[in-house]
Design a protein around this nucleic acid. Sequence first.
DNA 1: ATTATATATCGCAATATTACGATAATAATA
DNA 2: TATTATTATCGTAATATTGCGATATATAAT
Lengths: 107, 107
Amino acid sequence: MGVSKTHIFSEKHNQIASIAKVMSHPARVAILEYISRQDGCICNDLVDEIGLAQATISQHLNEIKKLGLIKGTFEGKNLCYCIDQNTWDTLQNLFGEFFQNVKFNCC
Amino acid sequence: MGVSKTHIFSEKHNQIASIAKVMSHPARVAILEYISRQDGCICNDLVDEIGLAQATISQHLNEIKKLGLIKGTFEGKNLCYCIDQNTWDTLQNLFGEFFQNVKFNCC
DNA sequence: ATTATATATCGCAATATTACGATAATAATA
DNA sequence: TATTATTATCGTAATATTGCGATATATAAT
């Protein structure tokens, strides 16, 4: 027991859940917002900004990256993390559509 | 260790994370969609529809209810779960705003 | 080559989530 | 009141997540 039964759900429902999962921790929300606020994308001060240990930040970044919401390339010494606009748009649509399509026809 | 440090994050970031957390399991996404598809709101066949044990469905419903996304009233013998339109709109806006406000200015 | 700085990974502990069977509670009906 | 159907709660087991220190890896500068 305790094993999540993802296989019994539709592709779309699993996809929406995956997106939501990434946003389901305030640190990751904060990270995404911080990255998006930067003019450039040198973001090694994320540790100071967020207030979690470097290892923990790295873990969170990795989970965001796995979904494709950010991509990182090395710019000189620092790793440059940026929002991946394509993925972002796709996920935004998927999620927005779900919110939009709910009907309110009772009670 | 292992204790989520919600107190170091802003109210808004925690709020967005809370919404996302509810949607972060495919069963809950499926439940929300199923309820919204119904013309009425007698939804005792959720167990057959989703394919999880009754106790598990009840747990998931409770987590959705805690956020205020659905409300339940008794209609005769059956419990009637419906989307709470007010909460839904609020959360949709909060979430949509977050997605919208991200800038793509690097890489 | 050595050193300094930034990021990733490993290993572990604490806590949270998921799922289900069993059982209790609730409400309509016989 | 007894029965039946529906939903909620309890207890428990399995798994997942969160967080951090320690350590490894990678790049830049000296």
